[in-house]
Every structure is written in C-alpha cells, then in structure tokens.
Write a protein that binds this DNA or RNA. Structure first.
Ligand SMILES: [Mn+2]
Ligand SMILES: [Mn+2]
Ligand SMILES: [Zn+2]
Ligand SMILES: [Zn+2]
Lengths: 136, 136
DNA sequence: TTCGTTGTTTATAATTATTCTAAAGAAGAT
DNA sequence: ATCTTCTTTAGAATAATTATAAACAACGAA
C-alpha cells in the first residue's frame, strides 16, 4: 500500500505535475501486489469503481502514454482490437489466454534464456518477447 | 511460378469458389520465392500494381480472413495500427524493425528450442512466438 | 443450356479504438 | 496576485476494420 505522497513524489521526479487525476490513476495502477495487465477501457472503468471519481477518457489515454514514455508501463505485443499494457516493466514473457483475452506473466526462468543467432547489419536488439497462446 | 490452375485447384479443395479476385490475390500472395509479410493495405495496393485489376477493399479483407481461417496465412502479433500477415505458416519467429515497420523471418534454429516450464490447468499451448524488436 | 441455389463481390455505411483540437482549468514560479 | 506553462476535457477527426444488402458469378441439377 503506497501513500499518495509517494505518487506525488514520483510524478514530480518525472516532471509530471501531480494532478488529482494522475494520482488516482497511480492508485489504481500501482497500488497492488501483483502485476496488472489492462486495456485503456479496463482502466477507465476501474478508476470510476475504485476511486469514485471520473477521469475523462482523453486523460486516461494521455496519462497511460506519459507513463509508458517514462518507462512505468510496458506495452504488450498481441493482436487485439485494443492495446494491452502491463505494470510489470521488467523483461518478461506472457501467456495469452485467447478465449478469456487475459494475459498471464511468465517469469524469465519459466522460459529460459533465448539466444538470437542472427543479426541484421546496422540494427541492434531492443527487446525479445515470447508470447505463448493458450487454448482450452 | 505456380500456374493459375494450381490456385483454382487449391481454392476448390478448400471449398472456396475460384473467382478471378481470389485467383489474383493468390498470384500476389503465393507466387513468390520468399515469405511475404504484409498488411491489408500493402496487399490492396499490390494487387492493382501486379495484376492491373482492381479488387475492392472489402474483398481483400474477406479473402485474407478466409485464407487465414483455412491456414494459408498466419497473423503476426505486434502492436501496430494495422494487422500483419505472413505467407509462411510454419512455426517461426520474427524480427520487427520498429523504424521501417518491417518484419523479418527468424528461422527456428536462429532462436533455438523454447521450453515453457509453466502450465495453466485446463489450458494447452497453441503457439509459442518470439518477437525481437530492432532499433538502429 | 437453362434455372435455381448458394456463395461472392462491391459500394457504402457503421463501428470502434485512438488521436487531435482548442478552450477552460490547475499547478508552479516569481 | 500574476503570469506562464502544463493538464484536463468534451467533442470532433481519423483510420482500420466489420457489417449490410443489393448486384453478380459459380455451381449443380434438370
Ligand atoms: Mn506481464
Ligand atoms: Mn514470417
Ligand atoms: Zn504508448
Ligand atoms: Zn484473420
């Protein structure tokens, strides 16, 4: 359970003004034990439910992008009509339950080291992500 | 270089009527040496260029989905505003050049075997795909 | 070959996620 | 308090995709 002051501090340190909207979004995103996988619409609805205050959809988009740019959120590459984000910004992989449309974390040690044996001249590797699709 | 008759045969065997639109799309998609990574809009433009005949955008969508459902095309999981498809339907992985927005095949042996050490009760693994993002 | 059936194409409208715009409001600095 | 800069917001715009429904083409049976 993080305090509101911690979020204000974090926002200030990132040169993001600590507005009440951003603080509410922080509470919903970062006040949890487990990693959180979400879409913008998930988050939009949760904010109302958990804080009682409404934040405009535009602000949710703005804030998620700001946090993503600052490295506080990770974008998960799957094909869906909506973009998925993750509060776990460490290198890790995912299960995607196609039926439930739910992401599940895979620890790096659950996958093992991945050695890419090919390289493209002039390019360097930015990320290596494994997506394991699950069916019933 | 496959003949038009081969495509007609393939379509018939898939209970898809061999219309001239579908045959044209087959020529563009499958008459090539290397694997082909594309978006709907790539394909739509190529059809005009390569066959001289225009196919409606709706038909391009319909046909790509039909081919995908039949297993002749693979959908590549990346976050982009457009969906990417692949004529190489075997299990394999990808580089994604973020700047150029281009996919590049990674052979299975360029990645090595991936052992998933975790399982979810009641679910089985449908696919395991590695996406390697490239930057300059 | 003709006819009836069913599948396909197409233009166009609808849907939906996301981004843009510009005005009002809030935060920070002086 | 005042000024500046950043942020929020409603609503409009954009763009990929999907739905609709009428015209059309392929097929199989007569
Ligand atoms: Mn995760
Ligand atoms: Mn490929
Ligand atoms: Zn982002
Ligand atoms: Zn598809």
């Amino acid at each position: 359970m993080k305090s509101k002051e911690e979020f204000i501090e974090k926002l200030r340190n990132s040169s993001l003004r600590p507005t009440k909207q951003r603080i509410n979004i922080c509470e919903v995103l970062f006040n949890r034990d487990k990693t959180f996988h979400f879409t913008i619409s998930d988050l939009f609805n949760l904010i109302k439910d958990k804080t009682g205050e409404k934040v405009s959809l535009a602000t949710v988009y703005n804030t998620v992008h700001a946090f993503h740019k600052k490295g506080y959120l990770k974008e998960i590459p799957i094909n869906s009509n909506q973009t998925y984000f993750d509060t776990n910004v460490t290198d890790h992989h995912h299960f995607f339950d196609v039926k439930e449309e739910k992401l599940i974390d895979l620890k790096n040690e659950d996958v093992g080291p991945i050695e890419i044996q090919k390289s493209i001249p002039g390019k360097k590797i930015k990320s290596v992500e494994v997506l394991v699709k699950l069916e019933d």
